[in-house]
Write a protein that binds this DNA or RNA. Sequence first.
DNA 1: TTGAAAGCGTTACCAC
DNA 2: GTGGTAACGCTTTCAA
Lengths: 334, 334
Amino acid sequence: MSTRVTMRDVAEAVGMSPMTVSRALREDRTVSAKTRARVRQIADELGYVYDSTAQAFRTQKSGFVAVTLPSINNANFAETFRALTNGLGEMSLQLLLGSTNYRVAREEELVRQLLTRNPEALILTGGHHTDATRSLIQGRGLPVIEMWDLPADPLGHVVGFSNGDAMAPIVDHLARTGRRKLAFVGASEGADMRGAARRAGVVAAARARGLPEVAMIDAGPAPVSMRHGAAAIEAVGRDVARYDALVCVSDPVAFGCLSAVQRMGLRVPGDLAITGFGHFEVAKVSHPRITTVNVQAEDIGRQVVTLLQGIFDGEVDTAMRVDVGSELVVGETS
Amino acid sequence: MSTRVTMRDVAEAVGMSPMTVSRALREDRTVSAKTRARVRQIADELGYVYDSTAQAFRTQKSGFVAVTLPSINNANFAETFRALTNGLGEMSLQLLLGSTNYRVAREEELVRQLLTRNPEALILTGGHHTDATRSLIQGRGLPVIEMWDLPADPLGHVVGFSNGDAMAPIVDHLARTGRRKLAFVGASEGADMRGAARRAGVVAAARARGLPEVAMIDAGPAPVSMRHGAAAIEAVGRDVARYDALVCVSDPVAFGCLSAVQRMGLRVPGDLAITGFGHFEVAKVSHPRITTVNVQAEDIGRQVVTLLQGIFDGEVDTAMRVDVGSELVVGETS
DNA sequence: TTGAAAGCGTTACCAC
DNA sequence: GTGGTAACGCTTTCAA
């Protein structure tokens, strides 16, 4: 059990003080280039590994940015996460990730846990939180960004888009192409608030366009994915043909519906239009391609990074609200 | 800017020593119940927040377990990750996640970064690493587990399965059902070592069964997914019909191939069989369902947790090697 | 260009 | 049951 190699050990090997080693390893220009190189080399030889815990303790800065995602198995969130990792990595910040499984109670537990690590900022997906979560966060002077949503009552900064408004172009497009009897396929009321917002957006848009009331097809509790979409349609059976269009909460659900409908021998878009949400890969590749909404997942990540940069540089003094928008992508299912 | 409330402040307010506060907050039974309650209450009143950075520093235990994944946007890895999160959460350990984007150089950088946080264990996906990564890890007395693979020369413990051997049942199944002219669809030689192992497994199994040499269809650099599978088949064009079966490196790639083949008007499995790997949702839902291999992603996570428990309890003294196996799941594409 | 001293907040260890 | 002392590895600050 060899004991850990510290800066002191490196310093002794180099024949200088720990302070010089510290400076050398941080590429401080006041240390001569020759010394820097020598320190680096000897540190490597000794297998020295820098201790960020000690640094975090001494400087009272953790170097962490905490992030909550509903699910790590989601191409959209993954893209945002990648953009965050890259951008924050350049600022020498490390992401501390937790996934909530779409449950606010889990989010609360997670935030509590993440906060003990003293993150320098907190990034939450979505704008719905328990009261306890809100009070955990408030009054800490900790920069907070809610993303993937435009909450009415934000905790701090916001980078997202309106999930409700994003559905209007779909309804418009369906109405223009002669569809009138719409059914929304999504999770049961409850956990997935962004899904609920999309549902409300569809209902409102349909009313505004004078379409009949939108039917609801329940795909079960969140998170819902391909198999839930398929199962929901199988449960409805061939009666599904009484609708003109299935407006789905996401592309995976839409793909599940598409498969189930095809299995029944119905034609898409001939008998039925199907739309998704999120511009997932499956929508671009499936046969036929699924009409969807592109949501700029990567851009959300980049904007959050830019915002954090501004915050750390002291250039942001009011709560920001960035709307990244969204756009209809017409495919072959409508 | 109020300065931070520490145990010392709480101690002064309570009229006792910081040591007693420390014990009280950890619910140490040697502190009287009355004192514990009083300390808790006053701590809350003062808005005291426990500093786990200081704890990690003092005890030299970070409470972190570091994990590298090739990609966070992968249903299989996500399932393993969820099992790890749940299991380790019960042991009060927090996951520190990094994604390598299937690049060993990125893995090296990541491991370097993760190690500075003093993790209590390191979990790597896959068994291929740079020499520098290996030497960073060796000789630190840090528990290491490689998962999703059965490397010949492991760094420490292993929980996985043989990616090569897992392909033999597919080739057997195809041969039994009369397919002879196989083509493998996967990433170019290089980054994705598990993909390369699968390819080698197919080639070896085909030889063993006396089938003609397996053709290679290159889907580009890793990671490859749905769109790369589709593009690869589009590039080949209708000539693809000269093969009996497309053996794909993963289900998403298989789905891409399936769509492209269907778009050309060819029938699956009539004109061509298609197989995938990983038992992804898309394989179960697509029409037709894709023949695949189930790889027990969740079980890998659970086994890693059990192993870590044993290690921390000092019950494991030799390097363990757990093979979770895999099984053929015949669908409708073959 | 380099070094010495002090201290970040907590807890292990021993004493009472 | 409770408290005093020291130490974890690093960097800020001041001095040379």
